[in-house]
Design a protein around this nucleic acid. Structure first.
Lengths: 247, 247
DNA sequence: GTTTCCACTTGATCTCTGTCAAGGTGCCTT
DNA sequence: AAGGCACCTTGACAGAGATCAAGTGGAAAC
């Protein structure tokens, strides 16, 4: 895990990049330049932030809420290819157009920088390029981890894998011992889960019911989840020992 | 497509990075430094180049042959998460250990650089970091494209998608008109194809036979493939219009 | 208070792909 | 030339998940 490559809004309500603990090498003049080009955007759940193929004239990061990267085939089949949680980076320095739709899965706030100035700053300050490389390698690891999920796991294992990822992300700011129950609200509809896992929403629903019946998870309402034993969930996900997730 | 971010051995029998047409910004002193730290390694088909979790003290690129990045679950299920064709980059600057096995799928020659000196050079010359970022973004695009294949495509579409990728890669140095038939030798066993596509080798075999029966492809022996109509194959793959593959 | 709507659940059935099993083909060895 | 082996094909059957179709529950709207 390399949490310091993520932009951490938790400790930094204003601007992500100016946060010293995350970006220790930042010089004051860089910060001021970034300050000048940053702005915030809000989106409602279900809104499309960027359409596949569109020009993308900004980069940024998720402040709150959840966004997803989604590919759609002509006949309507869709596959989510990335899940963007708070602190995740959005954008493709050096690229003009988006290769997939970016959707606000929940209400969402993003912190954006106009791409041109950001890229100029990046060219001037090598360590920003270096950090972006590390972040991109993290994303690549996460994408490849997910290829194993999509290609080889059963529906039950897929659900367990997704719950693991969300639980771990939450757990990174919550309890650290594995015996302690983990509690969170599912930020995705059953349909969004299905799109991420390459399943139908009916199968998602059935497998969640099965995991509940088998006491791997507890459900209160449709979204509020308790994981009494994280190790048990990881076993169900079929990951070796501690996994090593990076999403 | 951004072919100039790939290291092109086709025009450069000796050392990839010194090739001016590919790396127009290279200065002579860089080349000499790279020259000093480069070396070649050969592997036989089936050999493991790097085990998941191993220290990885080099970066490099494929000169000839095919390598694959493979993840394996405890019970033996395996998923190929990347296919490395000639000119593809191998390695993770800034990372110490490999997150998956790297296998020589065919006999293979790689051009390697010791990682430490390569990283030092990278730190001194920003445009190398920039190129690596672009290459990593390409890999990320390819991985996400493949997530759609794994999650939502049928067995027949999966096979057609794989054949498309291989045909396109070959076609980039071959015929350019879409009416001209494309001919190539499959560099993968049926089992390797199955591991890449999240299928069993029996299903791969059946679908190849079906595509042959339907005249989408022609087969001579088990590996020699002719694509009489690339457009037809792309339709079978379910990709919108021209696809935009980057693998 | 009841209506409406949306997200979700559950059931019945179907189908694609996996599993198990039996050959086939061509190459390399001896 | 014969044998062995790796790679591939094909068949029969089974099962996981998709599809089609009701039905439930809870919150917002009227």
């Amino acid at each position: 895990m390399t949490p310091n490559f993520k932009i951490d809004h938790a400790n930094c309500a204003d601007c992500p990049i100016r946060h010293r603990a995350v970006c220790a090498h930042c010089e004051v003049d860089e910060l001021e330049e970034l300050e000048g080009i940053k702005y915030y955007r809000s989106f409602e759940a279900g809104q499309t932030i960027i359409w596949s193929g569109d020009q993308m004239n900004f980069v940024g990061s998720v402040v709150s809420g959840i966004a997803s990267l989604t590919q759609t085939m002509e006949d309507g089949r869709t596959q989510m290819v990335g899940l963007l949680l708070p602190s995740d980076f959005v954008g493709r320095p050096g690229r003009d157009s988006a290769p997939y739709d970016v959707l606000a899965t929940t209400d969402l706030v993003m912190c954006c920088f106009r791409k041109k100035p950001f890229e100029e700053l990046m060219n001037k300050t090598p360590h920003i390029a270096h950090r972006l490389l590390q972040m991109t390698l993290d994303e690549l690891d996460a994408a490849r981890e997910w290829m194993l999920v999509l290609g080889r796991k059963t529906a039950r294992e897929k659900i367990a894998s997704l719950l693991s990822i969300i639980a771990r992300r939450d757990a990174s700011v919550g309890p650290k011992t594995s015996t302690e129950p983990i509690v969170f609200d599912l930020p995705l509809t059953r349909e969004a889960m299905a799109d991420y896992l390459g399943l139908t929403l009916e199968t998602v629903s059935r497998q969640i019911s099965a995991l509940k019946k088998d006491k791997v998870i507890e459900l209160e309402g449709k979204r509020h989840v308790t994981i009494p034993d994280m190790g048990r969930l990881m076993d169900e996900a079929g990951d070796d020992s501690d996994g090593g997730f990076l999403v």
